[in-house]
Design a protein around this nucleic acid. Sequence first.
DNA 1: GATTTTACTAAACAGTGTTTAGTATATTTG
DNA 2: CAAATATACTAAACACTGTTTAGTAAAATC
Lengths: 202, 202
Amino acid sequence: MGIAERKEREKTEMRDLILQAATELFVERGYDDTSIRTIAEKIEYSPATIYLYFKDKPELFHAMMDHAFSLLIEKFSVVDKSAHPIEQLRQLGQVYMKYALENPALYDLMFIMRKPMDHVACAEDWDCGLQAYHFLYTIIETCMQQELVRFTDAHVGAITVWSHLHGLIALNLRGRFVMIPEEMHAPLIQASIDSIIEIIQN
Amino acid sequence: MGIAERKEREKTEMRDLILQAATELFVERGYDDTSIRTIAEKIEYSPATIYLYFKDKPELFHAMMDHAFSLLIEKFSVVDKSAHPIEQLRQLGQVYMKYALENPALYDLMFIMRKPMDHVACAEDWDCGLQAYHFLYTIIETCMQQELVRFTDAHVGAITVWSHLHGLIALNLRGRFVMIPEEMHAPLIQASIDSIIEIIQN
DNA sequence: GATTTTACTAAACAGTGTTTAGTATATTTG
DNA sequence: CAAATATACTAAACACTGTTTAGTAAAATC
């Protein structure tokens, strides 16, 4: 049955084509200006076609978010697992911050926007997010086992670190750092991972 | 010239009426479902009337944000200025977190949403935000003068504390804490102000 | 009392996400 | 191979959206 296989291949190719066009538009124009019609126009299909591959606009952006997470998780793998746990934490943090600064639109999609999470009710509906979180959690757990950090609960520790980094990125990304000169934003964010590590260490 | 005064009074009354209706709708239905038409319907005027009082939808929501900030700043005044600086910081943080938990929609408007910041280019266009920030900055400065905290720069210190608190609220508000049981969210946020203070102290 | 200003609105415009009915083409079946 | 079916796609419509324009009563001024 070679035909069925080919059809399935064509189906995923079309899905990827839509997703890629949507991602390019979203990165350069944002969510509101990435309409179903402009995506359709870019790939030279009718708007209705997109609904044959995605239930609605939020689901399309959920798929885009999944893909963005796979890119981040891929980058997480450069963390040297044989290094000192605190060093692992530093590396993970730096990869995270670098990703956020280099892909602001995708970071926004993954951690700020409401729309891609519309169909996410329970934890299982967001396993890409859980997977990324697990990297941090595991390292914090290791740090705790070796009594390197001041936390008594690994979740509290992981969320403390994550929240701090996310807070910086999110306030910056959504234009709330107007009191800080623009050229200081990136250095401040870059330096934050070292300062938070210094602060949580025993 | 009593007529001119009355007209001006009526003008601000109408503005406030629109703002109040818009705020009520926004708090219970969110930004997207608060259309100019539904606001107009609620106050029993035509949609075009709203444009006689606000340039566009973002400007209306900017005014709403200004008002939300004035409520927060009002609450900031309960901080006991004769108390120990660290205690002042604790009180300020608690007021901030309480406000965020009790007014999630308004917090979102003030610190996350893009739309109300559309017309904000420079720092002067956001003086409500700067004013709120100044409360935190001043306390951190006092803490530094008495060598109570480990910071060498008051802006870095203020932003460290703010980012941590904001990160927690923002991740929670935008549904990214799916890995933590729902009933733990509020306690985690409530406790964070104490944990961050413990961590930054000398 | 005539004129101008003010406050408001009906209707339209161009755009949005989404659905429905219908049409060619490709595949399968008799 | 021809007929029947399934597939992939689209044109057009629906009910919205933010916003603008032209026009109309009423109020204020002269």
